[in-house]
Design a protein around this nucleic acid. Structure first.
Length: 993
DNA sequence: CCCACTGTTATTTTT
DNA sequence: TAACAGTGGG
């Protein structure tokens, strides 16, 4: 079978390390990728490579990501590179959604009912709560839930540890276990799986029926540092037949420890598969050098951290800002003023789309939303409350769940009295208990009662019974009947949308909302949400018809259940937060500022990033128990920024009685490295920004023309030292009265221009609440659609150069190189740390040996001979000659996309392709002078040479760096990447057998 | 037993 | 500031 047209173009935007990662023939490949190093890009390219070059069928590839957004993003980008809609055949999604897919198809082999439902967080909470109440358990329901979840998430790793942990946690253990048991029992009887169970059951399935995945050729895992124990198991099980696994991750960006993510999975993988090809991506294509420097200052406070390198490829840029403000609302106002200032000073180069405000917790958004609203700046909030968690949507979903599965007691219990039917808490509890004891579902109890077959023990007054029967049982039965009728052989299926519409009509839902939310604004908004929900359903149905997604390839000899109905799939989709892509084409062109939680911002980038509330208690969150993880969180936030980074901190806590905030301990030690106020945005500064972003700065005159009268060109509307300026009685007010205090402070602060000024109140309503719609939330990724393909011309250029150089390098190397993709004997792995056990945690002695980067294996692990790469790529000559001058503004060349239209250059996602190293020498000098961390560090103690630090640089024969423009990624050769690596990571505790 | 009202409290991050 | 528990009137 000849492989389909090899798509070598995919290699073009890649630097050397990336290319090696993409084309590695090793069975297991571990890619260590710092922020902005083109991680997603690389993984995407590898998928394409494996399919187009290695001839693997898309349906035999599993790509698992950690978040929904990452999955969507990945799919979109793979789709673009792969073409023909082949990305739809990939088994691609979050771990949870992939697991669900397998369970839906094969679940019955392990005794799972055809139509299991998914218990979301709310369900789980309610169930546990009821159990605790019923059994009089003294445990805290939330804690119990967390405990159970942890237990499930541990996976096979649990065995070794559990003994010790159990000993330490004797208190309440008994009760916890009881709770666990009861909880599982409840889930089972109501035919539900919770999030963790999806994984647990899938592990069970694949252990017992390995043939389910017998077709799987290769498995790729994104954000590997965030996988937990059970996901590790799952990964191996997915790959159990060929054991070809590619992982991408960055320990510094591990921010999901609270969800039992195990950074140690990285080492575990390497230990288990010693042949793993370790590759690290070190060039950062995202941020200015000073942003990287400071981020590094922060992250390196973690002594236990595994040190990696991050090589800036951009110029210095302006120093990040750390601003102290008086209060949270002053902070918000200041952010607004800075946004305005920067955008105006950029002429038209920057828009609201280029700005993100990243928060530790969603709740911090309030002041900011208010200020943005006042200033008339459009924004969208990402993360935080989910669309489907809004009460009105939740209710509808619960109705749908009950329609689908009448025995879902928990959902039924929630809608029993919505709209109001005169049934109170007592009755509901009574019914639930009755159902439990009589092993009937609540639905059955009610049905029988109303039909008169069996009288419920719970007292139900006659009128209530009528309402129940007429308003709940009958309508739902009607709808259910229509589903049954219509899915007959000839009928068009009863549409999901039609179903919801009928439901709305039968419940008189709009009236219900009007009654339940008397405020007209409020209920109108909620009704709008309902409409949006409808739109979402419509979208879902359309998508479903169009793509084969969700189906697994047929496996011979193994019966599969095909989920053909819309309803169950829609429900699963809702539970797994896999919000459908609402529109996105054409509409929503208005640029908006993004407010996001830091967690939700992972993997994204913006030219301008604000990180407010960097005070102790917020960024190491009071309730967080892993300070290092909080630090990493800050690191993630900071490294989202491309050219301007602002941290800020209100001096006094907003809600408390004038409590003073302490600057975050992560920031405090390096606070002097920040500027105290926003940079002067004069021409040179703006040019630097333009250069980093590869955009064109409008001419000076046109910028100045756009500046309104009396506009402040400096960041001087707020005192740099709020200490001096505060003498308001603000903190004397009781906390109910904070409004007074705020108004007072507003009056005092210098006025902003534009719609900001003026007395408030009255306008406040509009943006107060529910500004986030599902549509907005789900179009969050839309900017990515505007990405240029995988490369621009500069990248082409670099790639060609690189290809030539690499080709020559490889030739030389090949001779004395063993023809495997194993690490050469002179190299040690990141595993060196693990193997060197011993408490003193010292490093292996052997001196670092550079490793040629491109071993060309004679025998591929895939058993397919890679084709020789074509010597040249076709590229338009006029484009290929494009050069970047050191002093000149960079104009990013327009790359015609497939449709022949020129794409916008803004990219929300980290896809910036490598740029040719042009001004690098000049920049380099700056570097070494200004960067204490960097090159001038005294030679480190002997370090283990890391395979993971493939020595791109030294692989390059001397002389190639010189006259020739260095291809990207063949960076500054005087850094030995190894030098930075002296870090015993914690897993020294992990001893080898 | 239900419902409306009032005072209290606790506030992460996501599948 | 929102969700929640407790209280008093139907």
């Amino acid at each position: 079978m000849p492989p389909p047209t090899p798509n070598h173009a995919i290699l073009n935007g890649l630097n050397d390390a990336q290319r090696r990662a993409v084309t590695s023939d090793a069975a297991t490949v571990a890619i260590l990728a710092g922020p902005g190093s083109g991680k997603t890009h690389t993984l995407t390219a590898r998928v394409v490579w494996l399919i187009d070059h290695m001839g693997i069928r898309p349906e035999d590839v599993i790509v698992a990501t950690f978040t929904v957004k990452a999955a969507r993003e990945m799919k979109e980008r793979i789709g673009k590179a792969l073409g023909n809609g082949r990305e739809n055949k990939l088994i691609l999604g979050t771990f949870h959604s992939v697991a669900r897919r397998y369970l839906a198809a094969y679940g019955r082999h392990i005794g799972l009912s055809q139509k299991f439902g998914i218990a979301d967080a709310g369900d789980s909470r309610a169930i546990i709560k009821r159990i605790c109440e019923r059994l009089q358990l003294a445990v805290d329901p939330a804690g119990a839930l967390a405990w159970i979840s942890k237990k499930k998430a541990k996976g096979s790793e649990a065995a070794s540890k559990s003994a010790r942990q159990q000993a330490s946690k004797v208190a309440g253990l008994q009760e916890l276990e009881t709770c666990y048991r009861e909880y599982q029992k409840h889930l089972e009887t109501s035919n539900l799986l919770d999030y963790d169970d999806l994984l647990v059951s899938c592990v069970d399935l694949l252990r017992r029926f390995p043939s389910c995945v017998s077709n799987i050729q290769t498995v790729l895992i994104d954000e590997y540092q965030d996988t937990n124990g059970i996901q590790y198991d799952l990964m191996k099980l997915f790959a159990q037949h060929r054991l070809r696994i590619t992982t991408v991750g960055d320990p510094d960006q591990s921010i999901y420890g609270w969800r039992s993510a195990e950074i140690r999975n990285l080492w575990k993988l390497l230990r288990e598969f010693p042949e793993t090809d370790e590759i690290s991506l070190e060039e950062n294509y995202r941020s200015s050098q000073s942003i990287l420097d400071l981020s590094l200052q922060v992250i390196k406070q973690d002594q236990k951290r595994y040190k990696k390198i991050l090589k800036p490829t951009h110029n210095k840029g302006s120093r990040p800002v750390l601003r102290q403000l008086k209060s949270a609302s002053a902070e918000a106002d200041w952010i607004v003023s800075e946004i305005k200032r920067v955008l105006i000073m950029s002429g038209t180069m920057l828009t609201h789309n280029d700005v993100a405000i990243l928060l530790r917790s969603a709740a911090l958004s309030r002041h900011i939303e208010t200020s943005l609203g006042k200033a008339g700046i459009p924004y969208r909030m990402v993360g935080g409350k989910k669309f489907y968690e809004r009460p009105e949507i939740r209710t509808l979903v619960d109705y749908l769940r009950v329609i689908h599965q009448p025995e879902t007691n928990d959902a039924l219990a929630r809608i029993l009295n919505v709209p109001g039917r005169g049934i109170g808490d007592g009755t509901i509890k009574g019914l639930l208990n009755e159902a439990e004891t009589s092993s009937l579902s609540v639905w059955a109890v009610l049905s029988k009662h109303c039909r008169g077959d069996r009288t419920a023990k719970t007292k139900i007054p006659k009128p209530t019974e009528q309402r129940l029967s007429g308003g709940l049982l009958r309508p739902l039965n009607d709808i259910r009947r229509q589903i049954g009728e219509a899915s007959g052989p000839n009928g068009t299926p009863f549409g999901l949308v039609e179903m919801i519409n009928q439901l709305l009509a039968k419940l008189d839902f709009q009236k219900h909302l009007q009654k339940a939310y008397p405020d007209p604004e409020d209920h109108a908004q909620r009704w709008a949400n309902v409409q949006e929900f409808l739109g979402l359903a419509a979208e879902f149905v359309r998508d479903m018809d169009r793509s084969e997604e969700d189906f697994l390839p047929e496996i011979e000899g193994l019966a599969q259940t095909r989920e053909v109905e819309a309803l169950p799939r829609f429900l699963a989709n809702v539970s797994l937060a896999a919000d459908a892509q609402t529109k996105g084409d054409g509409e929503e062109t208005q640029p908006v500022v993004t407010i996001s939680t830091i967690h939700a911002a992972k993997g994204l980038e913006w030219p301008i990033v604000f990180v407010p509330a960097v005070y102790d208690g917020s960024i190491p969150h009071t309730r967080a128990d892993d300070g290092d993880e909080e630090r990493r969180l800050l690191y993630v936030a900071m490294t989202r920024a491309q050219s301007l980074l602002y941290l800020s901190c209100p001096l006094f806590s907003a809600n408390g009685n004038g409590e003073r905030n302490k600057l975050s301990p992560f920031v405090d030690p390096v606070k002097d490295s920040f500027m105290k106020k926003g940079p002067c945005l004069d021409r040179p500064v703006m040019s630097e920004i333009a250069r980093i972003l590869r955009r064109k700065l409008p001419p000076e005159e046109s910028i100045y023309k756009g500046i309104p009268a009396m506009f402040s060109l400096e960041d001087n509307l707020f005192p740099v030292d709020p200490e001096e300026a505060k003498q308001e009685p603000k903190h004397g007010f009781g906390r109910g009265d904070s409004r007074l205090g705020e108004d007072a402070s507003r009056a005092k602060r210098p006025r902003l221009h534009g719609p900001t000024a003026g007395p408030d109140n009255g306008e406040e309503v509009a943006w107060k609440q529910y500004t986030t719609t599902m549509e907005q939330a789900s179009t969050f990724t839309v900017a990515a659609a505007a990405l240029p393909g995988f490369m621009n011309v500069g990248a082409h250029q670099a790639a060609i150069t690189a290809a030539n150089v690499a080709a020559q390098a490889t030739q030389k190397v090949e001779k004395n190189k063993p023809a495997t993709n194993k690490r050469p004997p002179d190299q040690k792995s990141i595993m060196g740390f693990v193997r060197t056990k011993s408490g003193s945690a010292r490093l292996p002695e052997s001196p670092p040996q550079p490793k040629p980067n491109n071993p060309a294996p004679a025998r591929s692990a895939f058993g397919i001979q890679p084709q020789a790469a074509p010597a040249q790529q076709a590229i338009a000559p006029d484009l290929a000659g494009h050069k970047l001058g050191a002093g000149k503004l960079m104009t990013r060349p327009s790359v015609p996309s497939e449709e022949g239209m020129v794409r916008k250059q803004y990219a929300c996602f980290s896809s910036s392709p490598p740029r040719p190293a042009a001004a690098e020498d000049a920049q380099h000098e700056e570097n070494s002078a200004a960067d204490p961390e960097d090159d001038n560090e005294p030679p480190p103690e002997p370090t283990r040479p890391a395979a993971c630090l493939h020595l791109t640089t030294s692989a390059l024969p001397k002389g190639f760096g010189g006259g020739l423009r260095r291809p990207l990624g063949l960076g500054r050769e005087n850094i030995t990447p190894i030098q930075r690596l002296r870090k015993p990571f914690k897993p020294l505790t992990m001893s080898r057998p």
